[in-house]
């Protein structure tokens, strides 16, 4: 039980070597991604504004060349967060096979832990969706995107147009349901991994986790539903 000062490069490596360090990386990157999901939702909800140009003005503001550095900076950070989140997840997943080379003939699980046990699967599908989502609404490779002018995407039209395809809407809804599952465990887990826990407020953290996961999924799903139901039109 002794510790000596270690050079900082080695320190990062040693920190990450422990499963616990990986978990902290997952929590921190998870927190960043969670923040992004919330911000993205706030942007999306502007589609309900009575002023049909509201969301397009918001998009134009984001794409304004004067803040391009900021936009690409955020994108790079998100990309890095996603990459670290995935690498750490895969490494932890691999550790689990090392730690239990021979499985059980019969294994039962605790029902409440369903979301926790399926993080790797909900996460993978969400990843696939995110790629599709970017191709669809950012890169425009799935459907042609309308523009109101340079750096001024017609978000409202693209979004409504896209969701009028039931397959696109369906995938979106499925992904949001899985996101709900992922966040249901993930949000609380972030706190747990960085050591925020106390008998008095652990229950509240779990509630916050459940409520925020449901709220995010519900609010996002409402958009394709509204489109398909014909409440949201061009």
């Amino acid at each position: 039980m002794s510790s000596v000062a270690v050079p900082s490069v080695r320190r990062a490596a040693r920190f990450y070597e422990a499963p616990l360090g990986k978990k902290v990386v997952m929590a921190v990157t998870g927190m960043i991604l969670f923040g992004y999901v919330v911000a993205h939702l706030a942007g999306n909800l502007q589609v309900y504004s009575a002023d049909h140009q509201q969301i397009n003005r918001y998009a134009a503001a984001l794409h304004n060349p004067s803040v391009a550095v900021l936009l690409w900076g955020v994108r790079a950070m998100l990309l890095l967060a996603v990459a670290l989140h995935i690498i750490a997840a895969l490494q932890l997943w691999n550790l689990k096979r090392i730690a239990r080379p021979i499985g059980y003939v019969k294994k039962d699980d605790v029902p409440a832990a369903y979301a926790a046990r399926t993080m790797i699967w909900s996460g993978s599908i969400i990843l696939a969706f995110v790629i599709f989502h970017i191709l669809h609404l950012t890169a425009g490779t799935v459907l042609p995107l309308e523009e109101l002018g340079p750096n001024r995407p017609n978000v409202r039209a693209n979004l409504i147009g896209g969701f009028q395809h039931p397959a696109v809407a369906g995938f979106y809804i499925l992904a949001m349901l899985l996101l709900c599952l992922h966040l249901h465990h993930g949000v609380w887990s972030m706190f747990q991994s960085v050591g925020v826990s106390h008998p008095r407020y652990t229950l509240w953290l779990k509630r916050f986790s459940a409520v925020s996961a449901l709220a995010i999924a519900f609010a996002n799903i409402s958009i394709p539903v509204a489109v398909l139901a014909g409440w949201l039109t061009q």
Binding site: P19, K96, R100, V110, A113, A116, G195
Partner: peptide, 23 residues
């Protein structure tokens, strides 16, 4: 292995030790 905050340990612990200890 590493903990991924699943909570199955807490569910079967015969002394009902809570996940708080892991945090």
């Amino acid at each position: 292995g590493g903990c991924t905050n699943i909570g199955e340990c807490e569910a079967v612990c015969p002394k009902q030790i809570k996940l708080d200890v892991i945090a």
